[in-house]
């Protein structure tokens, strides 16, 4: 059977890896290419890079990092952040990205999902969504790092994104992100049950048990995290050994 995947995420700004807590308060960590190679060696199944830069100068630096990463590692990697058009897709795919994830632009222009899927195949198009629970117990989709409510229901948006051609979903829970108190199991499970593509849980990992919970109870196909890996709190190999012992199929 397919293994569950463990995916370190690297937020990159101005050529350096950073990690935000609840999307503010950013701390500098490391060189992205070096860190990518380290993770690939350590047993990561895949990597995700988020470009959180703003200026076009920095975007060139980021593109160069994508190329160097593609030259260096031999596991798949996804690029997210700052993708607004098919032209952005083209640039990143040509630079060597295996998949490209889109968030806010997909909300503004859902056809972008479709066009990208037609050009590159669904397997290259990842729909990334930031969600938050409302007071009615439903989950809403937010954009702009969790600051702007879109009016979309998370489950409906996930289904629509997949119907348009998204081949994978990264589900980031705003409330649990950076809090290290566990992934948002309920919505991860609901989305996973609602769509026929893999769901990557994001936001909330603090210990090994959190990974186990979201990959079993939460029905996630993969679990993504940044800080627990960057700061050496959890070693990927040890995490996978732990998961295997608990009966979760992982690549060791």
């Amino acid at each position: 059977m397919l293994t569950k995947r463990i995916i370190p995420c690297l937020d990159v700004r101005n050529g350096r890896v950073v990690k935000g807590t609840k999307f503010t308060d950013i701390r500098d960590v490391d060189d992205p290419v070096v860190l990518a190679a380290f993770y690939a060696q350590a047993g990561a199944d895949e990597l995700v890079f988020y470009d959180i830069t703003a200026s076009s100068d920095e975007r060139e630096i980021f593109l160069d990092i994508v190329k160097k990463t593609a030259d260096t590692i031999d596991i798949p990697f996804t690029i997210g952040g700052g993708i607004r058009s098919l032209a952005d897709f083209d640039r990143l795919m040509k630079a060597g990205a295996d998949k490209v994830s889109i968030n806010s632009p997909a909300v503004n222009d859902p056809q972008l999902i479709k066009e990208a899927a037609l050009r590159y195949g669904s397997q290259c198009v990842v729909l990334s969504m930031d969600v938050k629970k409302n007071d009615k117990g439903r989950w809403d989709v937010y954009v702009k790092g969790g600051r702007e409510y879109t009016g979309l229901d998370a489950i409906e948006w996930a289904k629509r994104g997949v119907a348009l051609g998204a081949g994978e979903i990264v589900l980031n829970s705003i409330d649990t992100d950076g809090v290290k108190d566990g992934y948002a199991l309920e919505i991860t499970r609901e989305i996973s049950d609602s769509v026929r593509v893999p769901v990557i849980a994001s936001g909330g990992a603090g210990n090994m048990e959190h990974f186990y919970e979201v990959l079993t109870d939460g029905k996630a196909d993969a679990a993504l995290s940044a800080s627990v890996f960057h700061f050496g709190e959890i070693e990927i190999r040890k995490l996978k050994e732990y998961l295997k012992k608990k009966g979760v199929e992982v690549r060791l």
Binding site: T3, R5, V197, P198, D221
Partner: peptide, 14 residues
């Protein structure tokens, strides 16, 4: 047959 499986078959398999 995607009635029981997620398709594409995407990820690491033995």
């Amino acid at each position: 047959d995607d009635s029981d499986l997620k398709v594409p078959h995407m990820g690491w398999n033995r």
